[in-house]
Nucleic acid binder design. Structure first.
Lengths: 223, 223
DNA sequence: GTCTATATATTGATAGAC
DNA sequence: GTCTATCAATATATAGAC
């Protein structure tokens, strides 16, 4: 018989992940974590040699969650690559709304709380950022023929993350979804201008838009 | 004779402010703070009834520092209201460069570390954000005649903060100024498109730009 | 692998002399 | 207002039985 693999480690990581998200790293004690996980101190230290070590495992978990928990649910809503980008942003909006703008991006939180104090932690945070941007960049690549030729899609994908993180920060600070919606709407406006530029370029001197090419975007952000 | 006002309180707030900026709130102990301030535990508790209370004083200090430490040094570099906006952003770039992308925006750090756990803290963070945006908005108002009439300048000012905070977060996460510069460059590109739109509107059907109207912006971000 | 019990250090905060 | 001394609670981490 195969030995039954314990899920204790997984339970601990999951408990830590949730508590770090809600309370932050330093504000969460190991006692809270193993109590929430339903195990004891000894089990935690059997799997992790320190709190920092557990944090690294949490950041690894987020690496694994990017596609199943963030990208795939958003991509399922639409096949249009540009709309997929904004569908991802809509997913974060949903989290903000469901928590009364109290919970934000767990990676962003840890990035600013821990800064550069723990080198391995910072590296795993950078990896999470890089993977997120790569996923967005793949959408932009799929829409490359609708964007101006000189657009740097890797940089544009980082700009999407910039707007997302900056918008979430202000939404939480004001406990108001407005700043997030505004940021997304202005990013949308920027995209529309890029798409329109490309259409002008492709169409030569013609500048009239074909009906249906520029759908209106209901963001819920307009007052 | 007037009683000499002690600067002990000020020294404590200043020490706390610096330590919170570098290490974060929870990672900084009161012992570190009063040691750095050169005073003793008793003095700290004479002026502040708790660590949270001291944090509120730190956030008040940032409110007072907005103009002398952030806006005025940036505004001194140029009279052009749009350039002033980007001069403020250049100021944050300077801090990133001087610290090897280790230190970010102290308000943003506290916003994400503390979230909504302490109501009064969140309110003072919101006030800091609001004042920052109002200062930027005053620049946009001064350039109102160069922006499209339908631009919401309050929202655009929040977008500037969004890009700043999101860019700093990624710059710190990657320990690389690149993502910050890219974000600012893309914000600049967005502004250029807004200014160009206004110029088209004002000029009627004419679309050629007058030489000198669109200066090239050296951001140092281009690879 | 999981448990209980505990070590050791540090935390935020207080008391009371001066 | 500032000091020293110290409390009580909590933190991370360990030891060793099972």
């Amino acid at each position: 018989m195969m030995p039954v693999k314990s899920d204790t480690r997984e339970k601990i990581v999951e408990a830590a992940r949730e508590l770090f998200h809600v309370q932050g790293f330093h504000a969460t004690s190991l006692a809270e974590i193993f109590r929430k996980a339903g195990v004891n101190s000894g089990s935690l230290y059997y799997f992790f040699k320190s709190k920092d070590d557990l944090l690294l495992a949490v950041l690894d978990a987020y690496v694994g969650l990017l596609w199943p928990a963030v990208m795939e649910p958003a991509f399922r809503k639409t096949d249009d690559p540009i709309e997929r980008v904004f569908s991802v942003l809509a997913g974060y909006r949903q989290m903000l709304m469901q928590t009364g703008c109290k919970l934000g991006c767990p990676i962003g939180n840890l990035a600013l709380e821990l800064g550069d104090t723990k080198p391995e932690v910072r590296e795993k945070i950078a990896l999470n950022f890089a993977n997120w941007c790569r996923a967005i960049e793949s959408c932009l690549d799929a829409a490359a023929d609708r964007l101006p030729a000189d657009v740097d899609r890797a940089r544009l994908s980082r700009f999407v993350l910039t707007v997302m993180e900056g918008g979430i920060m202000q939404a939480r600070g004001h406990r108001d979804i407005g700043p997030y919606d505004d940021g997304v709407a202005q990013l949308r406006d920027y995209f529309d201008r890029l798409l329109a530029q490309r259409r002008r370029e492709a169409g030569g001197v013609r500048q009239d838009t074909r009906p249906g090419d520029l759908p209106s975007h209901k963001t819920g952000a307009e007052s």
